[in-house]
């Protein structure tokens, strides 16, 4: 995605946002045309996308940590290989997404620096701890399940590079939810202790997973413009409902109880869930979840301890260039 070549330096005349251009832009969006990196776009569109795509990328990278926590303890070699491959996929997804964000003019490094400084958000779900092997199953089944609900509509997002990255991500993610469900199924068909482990994981993850879809529609700040720009095609509450309706029968199949005694099915067949504790969500987003500090500390440590490696590679490349130039001069 031809970032640096196209977006820097931004030509002065591109920054003039007149009403006619904005109308033309909206007309292209309405006609389901894709916007490409060097097309003119309103700066608010660029800003919204940069924020959303980079947050998405940060989520993939931070999301490696809770699951990575169990790679060295996966209980069979088959599970170990699948989990390592899955967490590696998340790294790849972060990488694709940073590249998509870079087409908007930011560099991966500055986006990462913002995240490490605690100035960029990532999905609230990754601030919860993974306490047992069943958490790995639950994350695959529910967290990836919820992520897919969110990501499939993004494959049709108006911004070309984001849509293309999401197509690749969705294709690769199709195994993630299945591997999670398979872990849960194995636990639920296993010993009493295993089944209890599965139920305990569901009890802890259920509400945080519902929060993943974001605040209720009536409180969501970004939705209006995002919908108009066709970045977002379904509202938070719509996706959340879709997820709950898909998940309840799966939980029943597993023989697990969703920790919401008040939940019932309405006449339309939708499962109506009880009130979500948005205060908890706001606190986690604000940095006060159980693992926010640990997650950021782990990413900072990897970044800081990797600095000398990146410098070495850069220094070597520079030396090579100089040697080649010298040889050419001889």
């Amino acid at each position: 995605m031809y970032t640096q070549a196209l977006n820097t330096p931004d030509r002065e005349d591109r920054c003039v946002e007149d009403a006619a251009r904005a109308a033309q832009f909206q007309a292209r969006i309405d006609a389901e045309e894709r916007i490409e990196p060097n097309d003119w776009m309103p700066s608010a569109y660029r800003k919204t996308l940069t924020r959303q795509i980079s947050q998405h990328a940060h989520s993939e990278i931070v999301g490696m940590l809770p699951e990575g926590n169990w790679i060295t303890r996966a209980p069979s070699l088959r599970r170990k290989a699948a989990l390592l491959a899955k967490v590696q996929d998340e790294c790849g997804h972060g990488l694709y997404l940073y590249a998509a964000a870079e087409t908007l003019g930011a560099s991966r490094e500055e986006l990462v620096d913002l995240m490490l400084a605690g100035k960029a958000k990532y999905s609230s779900i990754f601030n919860y701890p993974t306490l047992s092997w069943a958490d790995i199953g639950t994350i695959g089944w529910l967290v990836d399940g919820a992520a897919i609900m969110n990501q499939i509509p993004l494959c049709r997002c108006s911004y070309g590079p984001y849509a293309r990255a999401m197509i690749r991500v969705c294709k690769e993610e199709s195994f993630h939810q299945r591997q999670g469900f398979e872990i849960m199924l194995t636990l639920c068909r296993g010993t009493e202790a295993q089944k209890a482990m599965a139920q305990d994981a569901l009890d802890r993850w259920w509400w945080p997973v519902l929060m993943m879809f974001g605040p209720p529609d009536k409180l969501s700040q970004h939705s209006d413009a995002s919908t108009r720009w066709k970045i977002k095609r379904f509202s938070n509450d719509e996706l959340r409902q879709k997820f709950v309706d898909a998940t309840v029968p799966q939980a029943q199949f597993l023989g697990l109880t969703i920790p919401d005694p008040g939940m019932k099915q309405n006449e339309a067949g939708n499962w109506v869930y009880s009130a979500i504790d948005w205060e908890e969500f706001n606190q986690v987003i604000a940095g006060n979840g159980p693992c926010n500090r640990d997650r950021l500390a782990a990413r900072r440590k990897a970044h800081d301890e990797g600095a000398w490696v990146r410098e070495a590679a850069q220094a070597y490349a520079e030396k090579r260039r100089q040697r080649t130039a010298l040889q050419a001069a001889e």
Partner: peptide, 25 residues
């Protein structure tokens, strides 16, 4: 700030007989 590392575009030929296609960066 973290120094920038150069960006590369990747093109892959999935099968002989097909052209290389841009896949990412």
């Amino acid at each position: 700030p973290t120094p920038n590392t150069p960006l590369w575009e990747v093109f892959i030929r999935s099968r002989n007989g097909l052209a290389h296609k841009h896949v990412g960066s």
